[in-house]
Amino acid sequence: MNSTLLKYGILIILLTLLQVSIFNNVDLLGYINPYFYIIFIFVFPFDKNKTALLISSFLLGLFIDILTNDGGIHTFSIVFIAYFRVFLLQILSNKNEDDIEQINTKDLSFVVLFLWISILTFMHHFLIFSLEQFSFVEFSKLLLKTFLSSILSIVLIIFGLQLFLKKKSNA
């Protein structure tokens, strides 16, 4: 238990530093940045209890918010997708809640994995950008921004996930 705690504690800090120092400075076309840190939601194991996931993603969002002066928008958005990740996977893979606990991210088919990551990422980014504007005045611009940033994030997350899972199976 303690080693898991340490492992995910380090992961939170590492993802925070990566996001703030590297991914926030990508600025593709001047304003497109990937939010890579939500890979945390996809690598967190299913057999651990949900309370731990909610609290640790709350902390991760909080760290990012403090470092980027964003109030609480990252916290809000990541807790939101942390809560809905299991529901969504149930729908996508046609399994009940108990089956999901046995599941390993490696065993998911690529289509399910891709849809699961894409939908959650899109939800997260949409929340981020709409909370940032605090209004829906320029809705089309909001959608475009969400869409472009999501694509970048999804590609990076899938790539990162391959690395993470490979390393895990070797160990």
Binding site: L54, I55, F58, G61, D65, G71, G72, I73, T75, F76, V79, F80, L131
Partner: peptide
């Protein structure tokens, strides 16, 4: 509760 806290921060 967590979402409420985050929303208050926002």
């Amino acid at each position: 509760i967590l979402e409420l806290i985050a929303f208050i921060f926002i």
